[in-house]
Simulated scan of single mutants.
Amino acid sequence: MARAGLTTDRVVAAAAELADEAGFEHVTLTALARRFGVKDASLYSHVRGLADLRTRLALYAGGELIDRIAWAVAGRAGKDALTAFAGAYRAYAMEHPGRYAATQIRIDQSLIAASPQMRRTAEITYGMLRAYGLREPDLTDAVRLLRSTFHGYCALESAGGFGADRAVQASWDKAIDALHLALTHWPREARPDGDDR
């Protein structure tokens, strides 16, 4: 029987707190059970195991991240939207390192397809990039460029990897300027239908 007051939502929220406090790699069923003062077995009424818990945490954190990004980009387009998107992404990664780490794990494609958070993430990201006039397959390439840049920068910054005297914020601003130029002058791939607009 499930412990009174223990729900899947509470378990995942506690896992998110634990991830930020101790690091995503330290989110285990044992650590979480200790937090609730229960035995590990009590959690199996709410999650199927560690992989399920971490997947739920990734979706939870992804939802938080896209909510923050959506609020930041609302009513903006072009460079303003890109700057707001990037700033919200970076702020979340710095404020919630464990939750952010969860968003980087590989999730089964069927779960992604069924996830409202992941659909919303795609809609907002692709919507911002369509304002630059991009279409597939260039949209996918541009998403990969942004994700690689944002994630790489955040990972290096959080690890103290920028040692030069130049202010980290100044370099971030330049990176956004450079991304805006890249998106504005994107080398569009020829389309099979001949429509390269």
Results as ranks from 00 to 15, higher is better:
Glu123Trp: 04
Asp80Met: 03
Ala91Gln: 13
Asp108Trp: 04
Leu134Arg: 03
Arg99Ile: 00
Tyr44Gln: 03
Ala77Gln: 08
Val38Thr: 12
Ala86Asp: 09
Glu136Phe: 05
Gln117Thr: 07
Ser158His: 08
Ile66Leu: 03
Asp67Ala: 05
Thr121Val: 09
Ala72Ile: 07
Arg56Ser: 02
Thr125Trp: 03
Ala122Thr: 14
Arg147Asn: 14
Arg147Val: 14
Ser148Val: 12
Leu82Asp: 04
Asp141Gly: 08
Ala81Phe: 05
Gly75Leu: 00
Ile107Met: 06
Ala159Gly: 07
Tyr92Leu: 05
Leu57His: 03
Ile107Tyr: 04
Ser42Lys: 08
Ile69Ala: 01
Thr55Arg: 09
Ala159Ile: 02
Leu53Phe: 04
Ile124Tyr: 02
Gly87Leu: 09
Leu146Trp: 03
Leu145Trp: 02
Val47His: 00
His151Cys: 11
Arg147Ala: 15
Gly78Ala: 07
Leu50Glu: 12
Arg147Trp: 13
Arg90Asn: 05
Glu95Asp: 15
Ser115Arg: 05
Arg68Ala: 12
Gly133Thr: 13
Arg90Gln: 10
Ala114Trp: 04
Gly75Thr: 00
Ala113Asn: 01
Asp141Asn: 10
Gly75Ala: 00
Arg106Thr: 13
Asp138Trp: 02
Gly127Lys: 07
Ala93Ser: 15
Leu50His: 08
Pro137Val: 04
Glu64Cys: 02
Ala93Met: 08
Thr83Ser: 13
Arg90Lys: 11
Arg135Gly: 04
Ala86Tyr: 04
Gly98Asn: 11
Glu64Phe: 00
Ala113Ser: 04
Glu95Arg: 13
Phe85His: 14
Ala41Lys: 07
Leu53Pro: 00
Ile112Gly: 02
Gly133Gln: 12
Thr121His: 13
Leu156Ala: 14
Ala51Val: 12
Val143Thr: 03
Gly75Pro: 03
Ile124Trp: 06
Ala93Arg: 06
Leu111His: 03
Thr83Met: 09
Gln117Asn: 12
Arg90Tyr: 06
Arg68Leu: 07
Glu157Asn: 10
Arg54Gln: 07
Ser158Lys: 11
Lys79Asn: 07
Ala122Ile: 11
Arg56Pro: 03
Ala102Phe: 08
Thr140Ser: 15
Ser148Gly: 15
Ala74Phe: 05
Phe85Tyr: 15
Arg147Pro: 05
Pro97Val: 10
Ala70Met: 03
Ile66Cys: 00
Ala77Val: 08
